[in-house]
Measured scan of single mutants.
Amino acid sequence: TRVETATETAWISLVTALHLVLGLNAVLGLLLLRWQFPAHYRRLRHALW
């Protein structure tokens, strides 16, 4: 059971790390998009709101 718990903890930390990386990538991607295409982003925002 100790090995199972260790594997579980490893999986949880792995999934958490993946989520963090994906979240960071999403934020960075959005920031890059805003920086690269400000006009396009503004138009998109007007369409959404």
Rank of each mutant, 00 (worst) to 15 (best):
L22C: 01
G23P: 14
E8A: 08
L44E: 00
R42F: 09
R2P: 12
L44P: 01
W11T: 15
T5A: 04
P38E: 04
L28W: 03
W35S: 08
E8P: 10
R45K: 13
A6T: 14
A17M: 09
G23D: 02
L33R: 01
T16V: 15
W11G: 14
Y41A: 08
W11P: 12
W49E: 02
A47W: 11
L18E: 02
L48A: 07
A39P: 04
Y41L: 08
F37Q: 02
R2Y: 12
W11K: 15
A39I: 09
L30Q: 01
H46F: 07
S13A: 07
L28A: 12
R34H: 02
L14Q: 10
W11C: 11
E8C: 08
A26M: 11
A47S: 08
L44Y: 03
T1H: 05
L48W: 07
V3K: 02
L28G: 14
T9Y: 15
N25M: 15
L28E: 02
W11R: 15
H46Y: 04
V21H: 04
A17R: 08
L44F: 07
T1Y: 12
F37V: 03
L30K: 00
L32F: 10
L48F: 09
R43C: 05
A39D: 14
T1I: 11
R43M: 05
V15H: 14
L22G: 03
A47N: 07
S13F: 08
R2A: 12
T9M: 13
L44G: 02
H46A: 12
G29K: 01
R34N: 03
A6N: 12
P38K: 04
L14Y: 14
T1E: 06
G29Q: 02
T16N: 07
L20Q: 03
L28T: 07
Q36T: 04
G23Y: 07
A6P: 04
G23I: 14
L24A: 14
H46P: 01
E8I: 07
T1M: 14
R43I: 06
L33M: 09
L20A: 11
L18S: 07
A17S: 05
R43T: 05
I12Y: 08
V3E: 03
H19I: 15
E8R: 12
V27W: 05
T16C: 14
G29S: 05
L20P: 00
V3W: 08
A17D: 00
N25F: 15
L30A: 10
L32C: 09
H46W: 04
L28K: 00
H40E: 05
T1V: 11
R34Y: 07
Q36H: 06
P38I: 03
G23V: 13
R45A: 11
P38T: 05
A6S: 11
L31V: 10
W35H: 07
H40N: 04
L44N: 00
L44W: 06
V27T: 05
V15G: 14
E4C: 03
T16E: 07
H40K: 06
L30H: 01
A6H: 07
T16G: 13
L14M: 09
Y41G: 03
Q36N: 07
L18C: 08
A10E: 04
E4Y: 03
R42I: 08
L20I: 06
R42Y: 08
V21K: 00
E8S: 12
T7R: 12
T9A: 10
H46V: 05
H40G: 10
G29E: 02
V15T: 15
L20E: 00
H19P: 15
A39V: 10
F37R: 03
Y41N: 02
A26Y: 02
E8Q: 13
L18G: 12
Y41R: 01
A26H: 00
L44M: 05
P38W: 05
A26P: 07
I12M: 13
P38C: 05
V21C: 01
L30W: 13
Y41W: 14
A6R: 10
L14I: 14
H46R: 07
R43W: 10
V3Q: 02
L32T: 03
L31G: 02
R2E: 13
R2G: 10
T5R: 03
A17I: 15
A10P: 12
R45C: 13
R42D: 12
L14N: 14
S13Y: 09
G23M: 10
L24G: 11
R42P: 02
G29N: 00
T9G: 09
Y41F: 13
L22Y: 10
W11N: 08
L44H: 03
L22W: 06
L20H: 09
T9D: 14
F37N: 02
A10G: 14
L31D: 01
A6G: 13
V15E: 06
T9E: 13
H40D: 03
L20N: 00
A47Q: 06
L30F: 12
E8L: 09
L18V: 14
L22S: 02
G23H: 02
A6I: 07
R34S: 07
H40L: 11
E8M: 10
G29Y: 03
A17P: 09
V15Y: 04
R43V: 07
R45D: 02
R34M: 13
V3Y: 10
W35G: 05
V15W: 09
L24D: 03
A39W: 06
A6Q: 09
V27E: 01
P38V: 06
P38L: 05
A39Y: 07
A6C: 09
E4W: 03
